[in-house]
Write a protein that binds this DNA or RNA. Sequence first.
DNA 1: TTGAAATAGGACCAAAAGAGTCCGAATTAA
DNA 2: TTAATTCGGACTCTTTTGGTCCTATTTCAA
Lengths: 158, 158
Amino acid sequence: MIRMSKLTDYGIVLLTYFANHPEGSEYSARQLAAETHLPLPMVGKILKLLAREGLLVSHRGASGGYRLARTPEKISVAEAIAAMEGPIAVMECIDAPGMCMHEGRCCVRGNWHKINATVVKALQGISLVDMTRPLVENFVPLGRLQSGPSPSSLTSVP
Amino acid sequence: MIRMSKLTDYGIVLLTYFANHPEGSEYSARQLAAETHLPLPMVGKILKLLAREGLLVSHRGASGGYRLARTPEKISVAEAIAAMEGPIAVMECIDAPGMCMHEGRCCVRGNWHKINATVVKALQGISLVDMTRPLVENFVPLGRLQSGPSPSSLTSVP
DNA sequence: TTGAAATAGGACCAAAAGAGTCCGAATTAA
DNA sequence: TTAATTCGGACTCTTTTGGTCCTATTTCAA
């Protein structure tokens, strides 16, 4: 299945929790685990990761905790995912060029690059603030990729 | 990593191979493996799967083989992925409602639904024919989701 | 009629990734 | 000093993936 890991799932829940509260608020792993009902060891692990990746700022010692490194409008879902899972790449050949034997003669790789870029851009367009309220599809309905030289071929899609 | 399986990768390569050849052409697993340089047992497995899912039609017996079940314009990348991996769902709660303990109080689930739908639609907009030639980004640059009630929050994205 | 060449449908296995826990060390507020 | 934190790992168990292989069954053609 095309699925993000639980780590990412929880990570975004936690980040959204920050976005839902006054800016600059600091919370410990313990508090966040209690509030979100996620297991404490997991929450600890995730917060550490997010801090290392620069999305959170940590504050050590007694009464320490974490806060967002930037305002939530400036943190995108794409960044959050990348922090948890590494670069977004639907195919191995996207972020690991040279690993695939067939790279030379593969005729679909270029297209995967563009498809991947489209997904990334869509996710970059969603901030943590957006995640705190219902999303609405824009009047520009969806990002379509279209085949270049030749005509048609898109109209057939339901 | 957010990555499709090799099965899916190979599956789309194979489907694209059909799209690149005269309509209705039939090829055996052996032929396809030779042409695409993919391991024969894998190719066999994938073709069986695609046939079971209705994207290919199989023809048993000596000099049997497979052909596309529909014209390649009418088969989308989204369908191909779904055939190989099951429903496209970036989060478990999308295609397995009830599995997540936090479903009741989760405040981001609705948004994941919409994000998922956006990705699916983008992939539905790409047919096998499109995959046989370079994709070009449409003038409508990309599908953006926007938060409803409140303004701004999108302008900050690089 | 027979045999070769296909697909059908699984079982099977090893390796990798995921999910989750736990521990000792360093840091800091009180 | 002590208690509450974060930090950085190691560690285990389970699931998924990637890949192979085997035994039907079907069909074409000699």
